[in-house]
């Protein structure tokens, strides 16, 4: 394998270069913020990134897997909003006990995922359209429950929401802890299970995967279902975060999720992506936002421009470092003629 490449670098670095660049750039951005602003360089700022983005982290796991399989999930934000709304409604207005309510919500999320999976896999829908329809349905359903803002008044939930895990003088929330656990779990799943390997294989080259005898349809269907399920789990973290429900929650979240996956090394053409990378994608976006807030003097519009600019910077540097590797991937995965090193169908780097 090394002989095919011109560079001499350890296999580990070579395979995961986009991810490593993401980690490196995150540290650079965080360092930049620390240099520019007082009180930026602290454990709590880092922990805040986890707390404030806990729901995004969980949802982005699902989005990453969908991107790896070559699709996209636009329904993430809307499903979170709807699950959150349903959960809040059940807990506060219908006064249901917590566990059954959570179970129902997890089912709702999975059902959305299954709808997308069915449309894409068995009906040949394009993922963009299928999940866009799902987004519209979820968003509309939110308003059907109620057009007002309702809030969570269950004292146990409020206690959980305010609870802080304290360590080294900082704290994180339960939502953040949940997010970290999910990331670890799914990174393990991606690396060590047959399903994980199938996802990469199908995303890399569907025809080859099929010819190899892999269950292509089942894998695709399951991936979308999983994304819906994870959106529901994310809505739990979201509920803890906002303790209320309104129809406009989670607007645009799907773009943040996909952007995080891409920053972390995923390719929208499929077959490539790393869940741990998505973690850093989310952290980077959070760092950019934090830097803008710490800066404090930008007007609304300059803030938008600055955010986009920093993102652009990140993407450009990442691409500059990784350019050679990407060139061979830009051409669509249709060719069976192009030599595709065996290791790459595993989707690493």
């Amino acid at each position: 394998m090394k002989s095919l490449q011109k560079r001499r670098m350890p296999a580990f670095v070579y395979r995961n270069i986009t991810f490593l660049v993401a980690v490196f750039l995150f540290i650079v951005f965080f360092g930049l913020g620390s240099a520019l602003f007082t009180n930026f360089f602290s454990l709590q700022v880092f922990c805040n990134l986890l707390i404030d983005n806990s729901y995004l982290l969980i949802a982005a796991i699902g989005s990453t897997m969908v991107v790896i399989i070559g699709g996209i999930d636009l329904s993430v934000g809307a499903v979170i909003a709807f699950c959150n709304m349903a959960l809040t409604y059940m807990l506060s207005i219908m006064k249901m006990p917590i566990i059954p309510a959570i179970m129902i919500v997890l089912c709702i999320g999975s059902l959305f995922g299954m709808l997308h999976g069915w449309l894409v896999t068995f009906k040949g829908f394009q993922p963009f359209i299928a999940t866009l329809a799902g987004q519209f349905i979820a968003r509309g359903a939110c308003y059907l429950i109620t057009v007002d803002t309702i809030f969570v008044d269950n004292p146990l939930i409020v206690k959980i929401a305010i609870f802080k895990f304290r360590f080294f003088g900082s704290f994180i929330s339960i939502g953040a802890a949940l997010a970290l656990v999910m990331i670890i779990v799914f990174q393990i799943v991606a690396d060590n299970t047959q399903f994980g390997r199938n996802v990469y294989a199908v995303g890399g080259n569907e025809q080859s995967a099929n010819l190899m005898g892999l269950p292509v349809r089942r894998t695709k269907f399951l991936t979308y279902t999983l994304s819906g399920f994870l959106s529901a789990v994310a809505s739990l973290a979201f509920m803890l975060y906002v303790l209320s429900a309104t129809g406009t929650h989670g607007d645009g979240l799907h773009l943040d999720a996909v952007a995080s996956a891409v920053i972390g090394g995923a390719l929208t053409s499929g077959g490539v992506g790393l869940i741990a990378g998505t973690l850093f994608g989310v952290l980077t976006q959070g760092t950019i936002r934090t830097m803008i807030t710490f800066q404090g003097t930008l007007s609304s519009w300059w803030a938008k421009i600055a955010t986009a600019f920093l993102l652009l910077l990140f993407i450009l540097i990442q691409r500059a470092i990784v350019t050679n590797r990407e060139r061979s991937r830009v051409a669509k995965k249709v060719e069976v003629i192009d030599p595709v090193p065996a290791a790459e169908t595993q989707g690493v780097g």
């Binding site: 773009l255 891409v262 929208t268 519009w301 938008k304 421009i305 986009a308 450009l316 060139r327």
Partner: peptide, 27 residues
């Protein structure tokens, strides 16, 4: 030319674009 994925490339302009528009009209 830079090989940035279309969704991300246009996402950046989508975010920055409104900011630029507001800049032009001074809000």
């Amino acid at each position: 030319y830079l090989g940035v994925q279309a969704l991300i490339a246009t996402l950046m302009l989508q975010v920055a674009g409104r900011g630029i528009a507001q800049l032009v009209t001074r809000g």
